[in-house]
Amino acid sequence: MNPTFVSTQYLANSLVLPVQQAQAQLTTAITEESTGQYADLGLQLGDQSGYELSLKEQVQQLQALTTGNSVVATNLSTAQDALTSMSTSAQTTVQDLATWTAGADSGAQLQTIGQTALQELTSSANATSGDAYVFGGINSGAAPLNDYFSTGSKASSAVETAFETAFGCSPTSAAAANITASQMQSFLSGPFADLFSGSNWTSDWSTASSTNTSAEIAPGQTVTTSTNTNSPAFQSLAEAYTMVAAFGGSSLSTSAQQAVASAATSLVSQGQSAVTQTQAALGATQSQVTDANSAMSSQLTLIQTQVGNLDNVDQTATAAKITALTNQIQVAYELTARLQQLNLAQYLPVS
């Protein structure tokens, strides 16, 4: 037989390891109670860790798309506001042209109508959302519509050149009074109209890209999120307003000025119709963004619930565990203290 040596020191030390283990478990439990999640998800989930990671990646994707959609929604709203201003301005211009009457000194009034409308069009076309021009297409970093009234305007120079080429004089020349209404109509529908289409438009008027911006608004769903100043709405309105601004205050006869007003009225109506169509298209996109956000919100709630079921601790069970571990450690401390107080001499008979 081998003798077994037992001492109070040995008994006291025997509780050290269980206490350390209990303290480690208590620290973990307290952390889990404060965060609401398991301290070691890998250990807790095991082979479900990959599934949990996949769910969190889906959450991040949906949150990123939702954040991006807020920018898209703001840009679309800005574009709609600008188009509404354009439509309102067009309606006002049509009314002003309808009430205008050709006569003595009426050319200046006609010119003012055109200048005001063209300036408003330029302002609306160059609307911005953040740092982006909403009608610039993918070239959203530059103002899409050039200012006709700016110094060195290529558009203004092109109009003057076209007029002089067609009639051999400038609009303000006395010789312009000899231009008939029929000749003016032919000019407006021919050489003048050519200035507002094709390469002439993109060279002298617009710096926008004809490729519109697009965005993924939901997983697998990409939509067009803008329009640009190369579309018919902008071209028709610019053509109408420019002819009134350029030739209204000229030396044209009253019949030729009336031809200008009539041609402009028709073009403004076309432009206003095109604006309405553009608003409808952007409105459809706005509805798609709203629907996508609603669907993703529901999906996010479902996935986050699944993640929570995997990651989140049972608060009631964790609180009970903390209480049990605290009591266990307290008892161990008390036992250790009592064992350390034991002394063999207290039990030896006194001789």
Rank of each mutant, 00 (worst) to 15 (best):
V289H: 07
A117F: 10
Q60V: 08
Q306P: 03
T67D: 14
G308Y: 12
F167M: 06
T318E: 15
Q340F: 10
Q48C: 02
N228P: 07
F167T: 01
E334P: 01
A246R: 15
A264L: 15
W205H: 02
Y148T: 05
V72F: 01
S226W: 15
A274K: 15
L26I: 13
S49P: 10
I322A: 00
S87H: 05
N327Q: 05
Q258D: 14
A158T: 09
L11A: 06
D47C: 07
E57T: 12
T172Y: 01
L17M: 10
V16A: 12
Q91K: 11
V6H: 08
Q91N: 15
E57V: 09
A108K: 13
T151V: 09
L188N: 00
A246Y: 03
D81M: 13
A281Y: 03
Q60Y: 05
S199G: 02
W201K: 06
S87D: 14
A142M: 09
T116D: 02
I179T: 11
T84M: 08
T301A: 12
A117H: 09
N139D: 13
M1E: 04
A280M: 12
E120P: 03
T336N: 00
S203A: 15
N69T: 00
V94Y: 09
T112P: 04
A24G: 02
V268P: 06
L325D: 00
W201C: 11
T285G: 02
D291T: 15
A143S: 14
A345K: 08
S253T: 11
A320I: 14
S173R: 02
Q44L: 00
G190M: 01
Q288K: 09
T276Q: 12
T28K: 12
T276H: 11
S34C: 03
S294M: 02
G107R: 07
E120N: 15
L55P: 00
S294V: 04
G50D: 08
D47P: 07
Q60P: 02
A73D: 06
S129G: 14
L118Q: 11
Y148G: 11
L110D: 11
S214M: 09
T336L: 00
S287Q: 10
T278D: 07
A162K: 10
L195K: 02
T84H: 12
S189N: 04
N343P: 04
Q185W: 08
P3Q: 10
S77W: 05
L252R: 09
Q115K: 14
L335H: 08
A108F: 13
G152Y: 01
Q95V: 05
F187W: 00
F234H: 14
S89K: 01
Q341F: 04
L97Y: 12
D105Y: 05
V19P: 01
G249A: 13
Q346C: 08
Q21S: 12
T242L: 13
M1V: 08
S156T: 04
Y133H: 15
N228V: 09
L45M: 04
L300G: 01
I322C: 01
T4E: 03
G141I: 00
I217H: 10
E52Y: 14
A284G: 11
V94K: 09
T276M: 10
F5Y: 07
S294I: 06
S14H: 15
N230R: 12
T31G: 04
Y333S: 14
Q183A: 08
